[in-house]
Design a protein around this nucleic acid. Structure first.
Lengths: 116, 116
DNA sequence: TTGATAATTAGCCATATGGCTAAATAATGT
DNA sequence: ACATTATTTAGCCATATGGCTAATTATCAA
């Protein structure tokens, strides 16, 4: 893995498009050829190919060509950096919330004792 | 939440930039004003402000202005759609791998019995 | 060999993105 | 009132993105 930040850039960018997410969702069930994959989308093939290229360059899918047919497959391990970053952040963000909660609770009790 | 897909588009797009991820990482520790937040980045303030706007429009941060100072804070709940999508996919992707494993194992045993 | 099929390349177009400087606003401090 | 500080707006620029059509290439099938 050359550069973690660049990887995150590319993977997040690839995921920031509904067409591409739908491609991933379909590939999650089974590998598929380019034209099978493209069929449901209301888009010219060259436009669709650009999306596949983004997905492949991000590492989210891998493809191989046999004869004139290219088959695309999901690359499960490619989700890991994103999962790691997101869950890492989630942890810090919510611990911040916990501390905030604790602070507010402490203040509330302090006010309670001040009452009367 | 008006449109789940549009939300994912915006949040993933906001996360696809290291400057913006660093902003989030710093805000995860504590709320901060715009200029405090901007200080470590080698970038003109107006450029930096654009990043903050992207983060705010995606819902990842919230800001409020008091006097002439704008304070930024992380919005912990905004990570949920991303976590949901990613962990949902992870589940399907790896169950596909499991099935693939099973298939390969089955083939391997079949070949074993064929041997000799 | 000829035609159909699958994918790819080339090139065009509009809009978005990410950077900048210079100027404008809006509060605050003296 | 005046200067300082904290943003904000306006406008410029280069490159990237996401769409298209038309033309090419490569393979397969009759």
């Amino acid at each position: 893995m050359a550069n973690y930040q660049a990887t995150l850039d590319h993977v997040f960018h690839a995921l920031a498009d509904n067409t591409r997410r739908q491609v991933l969702e379909r590939l999650a069930r089974a590998p598929m050829t380019v034209s099978e994959l493209a069929r449901p989308f209301d888009m010219a093939l060259p436009s669709f190919l650009q999306h596949l290229k983004v997905l492949e360059e991000s590492g989210l899918i891998v493809t191989r060509k046999e004869g004139r047919v290219r088959t695309c497959e999901i690359n499960a391990s490619s989700l890991t950096p994103v999962e790691d970053w997101v869950s890492g952040q989630r942890e810090v963000w919510s611990s911040r919330l916990d501390r905030l909660d604790a602070l507010l609770m402490a203040r509330a009790s302090a006010e309670d004792s001040e009452e009367i």
